[in-house]
Simulated scan of single mutants.
Amino acid sequence: MSDYVEPAENLSEAWLRTLELVHARGGRRVNVLTTITDPLAPEDLAVRAAIDAVLVPGSHKSGTLHSVQTVASTIFPQDLYQDPHVAWAPALPDEQKKRLDEAADDLYAAYGDMLSLLCTANGNKLGTYFGRMVSWPGKEAGGYNQLADRVHYLRSAHAAGRRTHNLSDIAVGGEADPADEPLSALQDAGVQVYAPTDRRQRGFPCLVHIDLTLLDGRLSMLAVYRHQYLVTKAYGNLVGLARLLAFLAQQTGFDVGELAVQATMADTQQSDFRGRKGIEALLDSARSQGG
């Protein structure tokens, strides 16, 4: 049965409410929708500290653990983006538009330089999320840059005065594989994170789809996960998605709307973290420390 998590203003509270709901209903639920109404609202750093205290980097029976920051960087590598602190607009002076373009280009280039090495790391042999977004299919530099394409299209919409969503133009989705399709067929392809030929039932990629929707000048995002690991991955995923949405909004000049995550399977990972008591201890720590 589907579950709708009460929308939260910030991502820390959204993560907590999701973990609490799924834990209370047995530890695994299907089709769980989590919504953050203000993805750029400040995090509750005490909540992040509580989850990072559990995610001590290294080997664990659930696999290799990574900090929230490391997980977030798989979706948007914030450290590689030199924020120009200006948002795109049709009338923006050319010098400032150039700064925005250079910041994005430098991000893509820096990540491209790292991509081959990143793919040699444990768990990355099939590519990385951000690699698939900026160099599809994501194993080496020089592939199809879906983010650059979306930025270009959204800027065109902004310049034309479009402020309300248009499914054929603004939605970012689809499953076409640029390796098998001519570029002309890919203009509405959207942000790809997997190919339709992918037959794996679990493992990378858990994030399978990202949609962007424009309504009343606000850019919103929906991310679909086929298996959302609520302890080891979910908080970092929310941080990374919020940063990706902020980047796209800044580069296209739209306001930031809401961020939603649909988990076809949401999992509290009880068996990996001392059963129900372990999850309850994490929740108690996050709630007691959080503001």
Rank of each mutant, 00 (worst) to 15 (best):
H152D: 13
G253E: 00
L238N: 03
R28L: 14
V134P: 01
D3I: 13
V261C: 10
G290A: 15
R274V: 11
L40F: 14
D255P: 07
V22M: 13
I36W: 10
F273A: 07
Q269P: 01
Q289F: 10
R17T: 08
V134N: 09
H227Q: 12
D44S: 14
Y153T: 14
E175G: 06
A195N: 03
A41Y: 02
V256E: 03
F247S: 02
R200I: 01
T18L: 10
W88A: 00
A110H: 07
D79N: 04
H152P: 08
T164S: 13
H66L: 08
G26N: 15
N237S: 08
V231R: 03
L40Q: 15
T252Y: 00
D149W: 02
R162C: 13
V191K: 00
Q82N: 08
R202K: 10
A53S: 10
P196A: 07
A171M: 15
D267C: 11
W15L: 13
V54R: 09
Y194G: 02
L183A: 15
L118E: 11
L11D: 06
A53L: 06
A14M: 12
D44E: 12
L186V: 07
P93A: 01
M221N: 07
L222I: 09
L16E: 06
N124Q: 11
A171E: 11
D101N: 05
G173Y: 07
G58N: 04
A24N: 13
R276W: 11
R17H: 14
K139E: 09
T213R: 08
P39W: 06
E13V: 12
P84L: 01
L259K: 02
A223Q: 06
T120M: 14
A195T: 11
D105K: 09
E280A: 12
G131Y: 01
D83A: 03
L154F: 09
H23N: 15
D198C: 04
W15Q: 10
P178Y: 00
A223Y: 05
A72C: 04
D79W: 05
L55P: 00
L19S: 09
A234F: 12
G112K: 01
L186H: 09
Y81Q: 02
H158T: 00
T64P: 01
V56Y: 04
A176M: 11
T164L: 09
G291M: 13
Q289T: 12
A24T: 14
E43H: 08
G190A: 03
A160P: 01
